[in-house]
Design a protein around this nucleic acid. Structure first.
Length: 485
RNA sequence: GCGCCUCUAGCUCAAUUGGCAGAGCAUCGGACUCUUAAUCCGCAGGUUCUGGGUUCAAGUCCCAGGGGGCGCACCA
């Protein structure tokens, strides 16, 4: 960092162009945080002799006759500006700046008599005009609608908004690094799917004119990623924007980001270890600890996480002992007693899942891996090696929310075809989210998919967890909203 | 999609039982040589979300619509 000899003016202002007085480029020599880091040790009233150039937004100004103080904010933080009529060029113009104006300032780093580290403004240039008034400097924006629609303002005035998105970026890059260190290859697969697959969800549709083809925005990258495992990429991942045509809530946005990965030769137990280690690593990277607080409750992400089967949790929290061979009338009765609507096509597996989701899942805080799901509700998971009718699948529940879904992948093409066909029966019965047969995927399986463990993590929820935010809109820069007017 | 709540100046909020729409901040004008949401004086700022209705009189009550929030449903 060469703060002493920076170019103080950037490009000269006042030339021609479309906005006279606004330069075409500017070159700061340091940042607000850089100044604080380097000069915080000086005494009150002391001058450093170091001249710096900084740029940012003027967020506050306190005029004091022939003196003026201002708070300059950039992407790293804030630093005070100290202007004097006798030494600041165009002092009157400086005191006429609007809150929210972007400015570049050159001057010596000093500490005022009253003890505030400052840049004494020798020269300055306006870099952008804030034609619209910034929100109340004390209260900021409280209307969340305005925060989401005008994120460009929110990022400046809402405490923590910028930090949350910086944290998001850091979580993503740390995740990539961690996976790459373990031999995973990042890939990109199509967003347009001729057949929506890989999850049980309603897709968005679109149309390609030249091909005159109906296409679906992907609901999951899963089936393409497993094709790549067939193709010999033994460890792949994709950080995939996916789209699901469903309601909006504090935990749901129609477009969201999922991390999916597939690891050849692994099973779901290996994936559990991977998940807990990854999440604990991210917590350490971001906070230096695995002991977090979320929504007012303690959360300890240190490994290992608890593992418990769905049936065990149903007994623990619901007080009921059932299995797939439990009498159907009894299962239906247990559901209806508890106000769970039952449809005709539900089999025992679906009924048990409903009971679990109603009785046990809301009681879970986690972290806990809920293992072993009914085959009936898991069309892409491999049969459990010991328990017929069940599959090797788990969900990770952390802070009371589903964070991930993973399984030992189904590798048998014949069994996969049978699962797809069972889904088509549901589709015909009116289940809009049921899967349809993907012949090319079956063809890929016929070339041979090795034993593989797969994982999907909701990255937005992971960011919520690690940043302590309770609504998904706070971790998505531009969440889906109705258009204005 | 259904239910509940909400919408007043650029921002944050007031407005008694239905009785002249107000304040702070920001903006604009003025004062002030060490401020920290600076302070002080002054000016200006409004389709009270929209459209109907009741009433002598509606920000306030009723109906419809719109935006947003929360819950349910669906899902990650």
């Amino acid at each position: 960092m060469s703060e002493v000899d920076g170019s103080p003016e950037g490009d000269a202002a006042g030339s021609g162009g479309d906005r006279p007085g606004i330069p075409y480029r500017f070159e700061p020599t340091t940042t607000a945080a850089g100044i604080v880091a380097r000069h915080s040790g000086i005494a009150d009233g002391e001058e450093t002799g170091v001249v710096v150039t900084v740029a940012g937004r003027l967020m506050l100004r306190r005029d004091q006759g022939r003196l003026a103080f201002g708070d300059l904010q950039d992407s790293t933080g804030r630093v005070q500006l100290f202007a004097m009529q006798k030494s600041t060029t165009d002092f009157e113009g400086f005191t006429g700046l609007h809150l929210g104006d972007w400015i570049g300032v050159t001057g010596e780093v000093i500490r005022t008599r009253r003890g505030e580290l400052s840049v004494r403004v020798d020269s300055w240039v306006r870099l952008a005009e804030a034609r619209r008034s910034f929100p109340d400097k004390w209260h900021g924006i409280t209307d969340v609608d305005v925060r989401y629609r005008q994120r460009y303002v929110d990022l400046w005035v809402s405490d923590g908004a910028r930090e949350t998105f910086v944290a998001r970026s850091r979580i993503f890059s740390a995740t990539r690094r961690w996976l790459e260190e373990r031999g995973f290859l990042e890939v990109e697969t199509p967003v347009f799917h001729p057949i929506p697959g890989g999850a049980l969800a309603r897709p968005f549709t679109t149309h390609h004119n030249a091909l005159d083809l109906e296409l679906y925005l992907r609901i999951a990258p899963e089936l393409y990623l497993k094709r790549l495992t067939v193709g010999g990429f033994e460890r792949v991942f994709e950080i995939a924007r996916v789209f699901r045509n469903e309601g909006i809530s504090p935990r749901h946005n129609p477009e969201f980001t999922m991390l999916e990965l597939y690891q050849a030769y692994a099973d779901y137990s290996d994936i559990m270890v991977l998940v807990e280690e990854l999440v604990a690593h991210l917590a350490m990277d971001l906070h230096g600890t695995t002991k977090l607080s979320y929504d007012g409750r303690e959360l300890d992400l240190s490994v290992p996480w608890r593992r418990a089967t769905m049936l065990e949790l149903l007994e623990e929290h619901g007080g009921i002992v059932v299995d797939l061979d439990t009498d159907m009338d009894m299962l239906v009765g247990l559901c209806t007693e508890r106000g769970i609507p039952v449809e005709d096509h539900y089999g025992p597996g679906k009924l048990i899942l409903e009971l679990y989701e109603k009785l046990a899942e809301p009681e879970l805080w986690g972290p806990v891996f809920v293992t072993d799901y009914p085959k009936e509700v898991s069309p892409l998971s491999r049969d459990h090696r010991e328990h017929p009718g069940w599959v090797e699948r788990f969900e990770g529940i952390v802070a009371g929310r589903e964070l991930c879904n993973a399984f030992t992948e189904l590798v048998d093409p014949d069994e996969q075809r049978a699962r797809f066909e069972a889904q088509e029966v549901g589709k015909a019965a009116g289940d809009a989210e049921a899967m349809v047969i993907d012949e090319d995927y079956l063809r890929a399986l016929e070339y041979g998919l090795p034993p593989t463990g797969g994982l999907g993590i909701g990255m937005d929820r992971l960011v919520m967890l690690l940043t302590g935010t309770t609504t998904i809109r706070d971790v998505i820069l531009f969440p889906t909203l109705r258009p204005e007017q």
